[in-house]
């Protein structure tokens, strides 16, 4: 069991690490400009299919843009959305959760209520409405997802803080005369980080999937940016004749999210926090 589990962790880490490298070094990986259209070379299939051209490994899209170039630049968007959303929602969720768990009483009641209310709000619908009203851009998508996806951070941080709050070393810090902020920052936070790391992977995977769904519905990252969700939306009209136009970005998205989930699952086992997250 252990060996198999840590294999999952390594496979997950490899997929995520690889995508991160691709995202960082995107300009060096492709000789083509992801935005350059060439209408005489539309919908060339990938190199291993009949009609493939050696200069376009993954073919071209409906506007003649190189598909490999768009794919590697798309990795940038997915990773950026994933990481930025986790940072934003993590800040909100962890602050709320730690406050609720640390202070208890009325404050905790209010925070629990905010979490309940947030859960009742239909996520995709509200995200779509916000992007539509404010205008679509990368920043708006990150802000919207960040403001909506914090509840799992809050739930886990709250429970973990409650468990840590009454431990001996916190009592020791109190009696040593440490201040409240010091105890929260130095005694509690470092000790609840492992379950939160697992939540971070779950939320990153969710944020990437949601961005793709929003872009697919036309209210996420605006064209001509090469978001994988947008690539699937643009390829949809051609998918019955050239299925690869949706398979290439779709499989990449699937593999990246699967990798993040594997990483999270492996971390959970490694840190033995299964019950909390």
């Amino acid at each position: 069991m252990r060996g198999w589990r840590s294999a999952g962790l390594w496979v997950g880490a490899f997929i995520v690490g690889f995508t991160l490298l691709v995202a960082i070094f995107a300009p060096m990986l492709s000789a083509h400009d992801p935005f350059a259209q060439e209408l005489s070379r539309r919908l060339i299939p990938p190199i291993w299919m009949e009609g493939g051209k050696p200069e376009h490994w993954l073919g071209t899209d409906q506007l003649g843009r190189d598909y490999l170039a768009r794919l590697v630049y798309g990795a940038r968007i997915s990773m950026l959305i994933g990481i930025m959303t986790v940072v934003t929602s993590g800040l909100i969720g962890i602050s709320l959760g730690v406050a609720g768990g640390f202070f208890g009483g009325r404050i905790d009641d209010v925070i629990l209520f905010i979490i309940t209310a947030r859960l009742s709000i239909p996520l995709i619908l509200v995200a779509l409405a916000v992007v539509s009203l404010v205008g679509s851009s990368l920043t708006v998508v990150v802000a919207t997802l960040g403001l909506l996806l914090w509840e799992r951070f809050a739930v886990v941080a709250r429970v973990a803080t409650m468990q840590v709050r009454n431990l001996d070393y916190v009592a020791a810090a109190w009696s040593a005369g440490c201040s409240q902020p010091y105890i929260v920052m130095r005694e509690i936070l470092p000790n609840i980080l492992s379950p939160l790391a697992v939540v971070a992977t779950l939320e990153m995977a969710l944020a990437i999937l949601l961005e793709a769904a929003l872009s697919f519905l036309g209210l996420g990252v605006p064209p001509p940016l090469p978001s994988w969700g947008l690539m699937i939306a643009e390829g949809k009209d051609y998918m019955f004749f050239s299925a690869w136009v949706i398979m290439v970005p779709g499989l990449s998205l699937f593999a990246l999210v699967f990798g993040i989930n594997l990483l999270g699952d492996g971390l959970r086992d490694l840190l033995k926090t299964g019950r909390v997250a």
């Binding site: 198999w4 995977a205 769904a213 519905l217 699937i232 998918m239 779709g250 999210v257 699967f258 989930n261």
Partner: peptide
């Protein structure tokens, strides 16, 4: 619990969780 079939099933769950729903819909359509 802990046997190969359990591992396979949890791997399938992880795969299902990673599936972008709109993309799966299009693949099923094709």
């Amino acid at each position: 619990e802990g046997r190969p079939i359990d591992r396979v099933i949890s791997l399938v769950a992880l795969l299902g969780q990673a599936m972008p729903s709109f993309w799966l819909g299009l693949v099923l359509m094709i």
